[in-house]
Amino acid sequence: MNIYFQLFKTFFEIGAFTIGGGYAMLSMVERSVVQKKKWMTKDDFWDMIVVVQTIPGVFAVNTALYTGYRIKGMKGAICAALGAIIPSFVIICLVAMFFVEIRDNTIVERIFKGIRPCVVALILAPALQMVKSAKITLKTAVIPIGAVFLVWWCDVSPVYVIVASALGGVLIGAYSYYRISSK
C-alpha cells in the first residue's frame, strides 16, 4: 500500500473513532503509529507530544501533520492531516444539513433542553481539574481570575488575554532568571 494512502488511512481511522477530542486520541495514536506501523519509537512519540502541545492549533491535526512530515515531508503531512480532518468534516456537514430542520421539532427541543446544562458542566469539570494540574497557587491565582473577569465581564477578546499572559510569563521568567544569575 502506498505510504501516502497509509498515512491518510491511519489518521482517518483515528479521526473517525475517537470521541472526546485531543487527549482521548493519544492512546489510539500511540497504538497505530508506534506499535502497529512502527513509524516512530516511543521516545519520538513523547517528543512529538511535547511539540504538538507547545504549538497552537488543533491537537489531532498537529499530531497528524507532525507524523506525516517525519515520514514523507510536506506531502505526507498534508495526507495525514486530511485524514484526521475529513471524518469530522463530513459528519458535521451532515449534522448541519439536518439539524437546522429538526432543531425546532418538539422532541429534539426537549432533548436539547436537558443536554445544554449538561454541556456547561462538562466544560467546568476539566477546568477545575486543570486548576490542579496547572499548579495554580494563591499567588498565581490572579491570572485565571483576571482572565475570567476580562473575558466574562468586560467582553475582552481572549486573544488579548493569551498574548498578555504569554508576554507576562516571559517578562517575569526573564526577570527572575536575571536576578538569580546576577547574585
Binding site: V120, A141, P144, A147, V148, I162, G169
Partner: peptide
Amino acid sequence: IENRYVQYVFSGLRPAIVGLIFAAALLLM
C-alpha cells in the same frame, strides 16, 4: 523546544487558559 523562553511563555499561558475555560462555561450559563 525545552528552551527557557518557551517555558516562560507557558508559565503565563497555562493559568490564563484555565481562566479562559471558566469564562467559556460562565458565558454559557
